[in-house]
Each structure stands twice: as structure tokens, then as C-alpha cells.
């Protein structure tokens, strides 16, 4: 059986070497470079001690929280509905809702511009209705819209998969005991979907914290952490600070996902 172990080890080896050389080693280096600036390892504290960085951290986390809550509500409603009620066109709706699944951040940003940009649909409609053009694509609200757009497809898929596994007999039992619809939702459906909500929510959150493409497309002036890092790196050429901030950013998202995985008890696969 030792031969077996050796075989398995050698099958894992290529992935291991690749991972070591191109992820663990670089990340370690990033950590030390983060501490190599003028302030030394105090740079890692800058995210809370520096007012500007702290402000962007707060707005980033706030944006991520809002994205998560909005996405969960929207996807929860539609996901359970589409899983439970089968009607003609159901499959088509699911296909359309999950189509943007792997759109990259830049394209999502462009979708937001199409809706809420200077030549966007919302602007046209509001101008027609009120005479005033509503344009919010190039702000925090636009970013929020983009992240919700990005997160809905995968969250709906997660919710649908979880709703499929919910035993309808539990609902029937609750009804047989006289529970009205809202109680059934509160006492049976939501608790049953909780693990899915936790894992999908964590992914929404992590994505909104770490994503860069959408913000980059919409405007470089939006004050979220990934944009700050990008600016430090390119415009200020402050490598140490960029490294320290991105290391903290990575740690935050990783911890959120790891916590969710423990809480949900199932695998949580994140996506960019």
C-alpha cells in the first residue's frame, strides 16, 4: 500500500509545485513587501489608523453588506418561486436569470452604464417622465447595482439547489398544523435555506469586497478599497502600501468565506 501512497503523492505533486511557486511564495513575498515601506509593518495598521484608508474600508464593507442583503432578498424570492412553481416558460426564465453567470466585472460595469449611464435607459425613461435625467452609474450606487447584477445568477442557482432539497412534507406538516403562509415561510422555508443563504451571501460579500473590474469601468473616483490599492500601485507607485492593503483585503475575504464555510457546514466556492 506504500506504492499506492507514492502514486497518489506524485499525482498531486504538479499541482502542489505550481501552487507553491505561484501562489504561496508570491503571497509570502507580498506580505514582507507590505512591511518594507517607510512605516515598516505598521503599514498593516494603516488601514484602520489612516483616516482615508479607514473611510474606504468602511465604505467597501458597507457596500458589500448592502449588496449581500439585496442579492439574498431578490434571489431568495425568485429562486424559491422558480424551484417550487413549475409553469410553461419556467426553464427559459431560469436560463435567462443565470445567463450572466460568468460575465466579467468590466462587462458588468458596461451593463450598468447601459442602464444608468449618461446614454442609459433609466436616464431616458426618467427624462421622459419627469424631465430630469437620472444618471447614477458612475457612483457608489452604480457599483452597488453592478455587484447585485453580478451576484444574482449564482445566488439564484444556490437557492434553487437548496430549495430542491427542502422536503415539501415539512411545509405540508406545518400547514396541517394550521400555520398560515407567512409562518410557513418563517418557520420552515427560511430555516431550511439558511445554509444556502450563508454560503451564497458570503460569496456575494467577498466578491463585492475584492472585485475590481466593475469599479474600474465605472469610475476611478469611487472610493472602495480595490480602487485605492490600484491607485497606490499605479499612480503613487507606493508598492509597500499597495501590498499591505491588498494583503489585508485578501485576508478579509478569505476569513469571511472560511467563516461561512464553517457556519454553513458545506463547501462554499467563491468566484471573482
Amino acid at each position: 500500500m506504500r506504492r499506492e501512497s507514492f502514486r497518489l503523492f506524485s499525482l498531486l505533486l504538479p499541482a502542489g509545485i505550481f501552487f507553491l511557486a505561484f501562489f504561496l511564495l508570491p503571497l509570502t513575498r507580498l506580505f514582507f513587501i507590505g512591511g518594507s515601506g517607510a512605516e515598516g509593518f505598521a503599514a498593516y495598521a494603516a488601514i484602520v489608523t489612516d483616516r482615508n484608508y479607514f473611510a474606504s474600508l468602511v465604505s467597501t464593507l458597507g457596500l458589500a453588506m448592502a449588496t449581500t442583503v439585496a442579492t439574498l432578498i431578490v434571489s431568495g424570492l425568485s429562486g424559491v418561486f422558480l424551484q417550487r412553481r413549475k409553469f410553461p416558460g419556467n426553464g427559459l426564465l431560469v436560463a435567462m436569470l443565470t445567463l450572466p453567470l460568468a460575465f466579467p466585472g468590466v462587462v458588468i460595469g458596461f451593463m450598468v452604464i447601459m442602464l444608468a449611464g449618461r446614454q442609459g435607459l433609466i436616464g431616458d425613461v426618467t427624462q421622459f417622465l419627469t424631465g430630469e435625467k437620472l444618471v447614477f452609474a458612475y457612483s457608489m450606487a452604480g457599483l452597488f447595482m453592478g455587484y447585485v447584477y453580478f451576484s444574482i445568477p449564482r445566488t439564484i442557482l444556490t437557492v434553487m439547489a437548496a430549495a430542491e432539497k427542502l422536503d415539501p412534507k415539512l411545509e405540508e406538516a406545518a400547514r396541517s398544523l394550521g400555520a398560515p403562509t407567512w409562518r410557513v415561510v418563517l418557520d420552515v422555508i427560511i430555516p431550511g435555506l439558511k445554509p444556502a443563504f450563508i454560503s451564497a451571501g458570503a460569496i456575494c460579500f467577498a466578491t463585492a469586497v475584492g472585485a475590481f473590474g466593475t469599479a474600474f469601468t465605472l469610475a476611478t473616483r469611487i472610493n472602495v478599497l480595490p480602487m485605492v490599492i490600484y491607485t497606490e500601485f499605479t499612480l503613487q507607485a507606493n508598492m509597500a502600501m499597495a501590498a499591505a492593503l491588498s494583503f489585508v483585503l485578501g485576508a478579509v475575504t478569505w476569513v469571511v468565506l472560511a467563516l461561512a464555510r464553517t457556519a454553513a457546514g458545506s463547501s462554499v466556492a467563491a468566484a471573482g
Binding site: R29, A206, V209, I229, S246
Partner: peptide
Amino acid sequence: AVPGLATALA
């Protein structure tokens, strides 16, 4: 889990 920005910098 780690943002692409951080990995790329690394």
C-alpha cells in the same frame, strides 16, 4: 477567495 488584485500584485 483572495481578490485577483492581491494575487496579481503578489
